[in-house]
Amino acid sequence: MATIITKEQQEKEKMVTLVSSDSEKFVVEQKVAEKSHVIKMVMNCCGIESPIPVRRVKGDILKSILEYCEKHSKGEAQEVMEKWDKEYMDKAEKDLVFFHDLMLASHFLHIQELVDLIAVTFAGMLKMKSPEEIRQKFNINNDLTKEQEEHIMTTFGWAFQPI
């Protein structure tokens, strides 16, 4: 049996528990969790009494996402938010595997603002880079044949001039 909490208390505090794929528990305000459309939908149909499992997202990722949601539920001035977002991204992009998971998870949870923010940061990593540089950075295996590669290079020659 779950601990008995009266409805009044619930309404007052409006806290909700989220459980990550590796069973880590996070207790956050409802308005923070609502930043995710998926969690919002689940809360709307099932209430917030029981913990909500977020099975596809690991604890460290969920923690980071909730940190974002919490900051963005405060309604602070735009400049403050932009600065915060930048610092948040600077920290997150250091570990590329983590960063990919962050994007997948925020996409899965439907947090559009965060997906957009990550997309912009990703685009920044691809800017002004040669194909070889990109392959190295993201560990991409080039499986094109030499002919295919040459065909692309000649068709779109203008895009491959020295940067």
Partner: peptide, 24 residues
């Protein structure tokens, strides 16, 4: 998601991703 990222790039950068691999 990749399209979302690519759509943010300049044409030049975007077209260049065409020779990364078959997927791209």
């Amino acid at each position: 998601l990749l399209l979302r990222i690519l759509s943010l790039l300049q044409m030049k950068d975007r077209v260049r991703t065409g020779c990364l691999s078959t997927r791209w």
